[in-house]
Amino acid sequence: MIVLDSIHKSYVTGTNSLHVLKGIDLEIGAGEFVSVMGSSGSGKSTLLNILGILDDYDSGSYVLNGKKIKGLNETKAAMLRNEMIGFVFQSFNLISFKNARENVALPLYYQKVSRRKRNVIAMEYLDRMGLKDWADHLPSELSGGQKQRVAIARALISNPKVILADEPTGALDTVTSFEVMDILKEVNDQGITVIIVTHEHDIASMTRKIIRLRDGIIAEVIVNGDLQLYRDRVLAE
């Protein structure tokens, strides 16, 4: 699904050049549930931006679903993001003056789906998130957990191959965090690749593979079967 081959990326500010990613080799198969961890400055956000086609890279190669992603123009990149990737953000990033249904339906608007049809589909996804009764509420009238579920519904509505979640639980309390993780797990169970960026160990422990970044390179990859226990322990506390 995702193949990264010695990805390099530096940011140039004035005369200074900051080498952020120093050769990332990574392969993530279809249907994997992966978390990316690392301290701030380790390059995890940059990696996420490249994976999400929000940013270009300097050298190496990135192949997404068999298609090489490099030097796309903005319109093409927008189209690919719309088709292939669903985003979930820490701060939800719902549009404040649109109600839950309109927020969920937005990606379909950019696919030129008719208004009536995309509202029907949006209601289905809200129903799956248990938010059917909240469809007409503005984001400001929803709790944090509800907001993130709306955001997940929005990420899923375009049937993406990959869900990219940037600190999806960062703004939520523990119980709500686990609810959101449960939903993401369900999403993963349906065969969608889920990649989570987080710095919380208990959240990372719920994924099947942890990629730990340090100073722009992959420090270790933990394939996780047993850390399920870790979660039970955290819950017990």
Partner: peptide, 14 residues
């Protein structure tokens, strides 16, 4: 921010 969200969701520059 809103424009950023729209672009992330697939809004073209046009």
């Amino acid at each position: 921010r809103e424009i950023g969200i729209r672009k992330a969701l697939g809004a073209s520059p046009a």
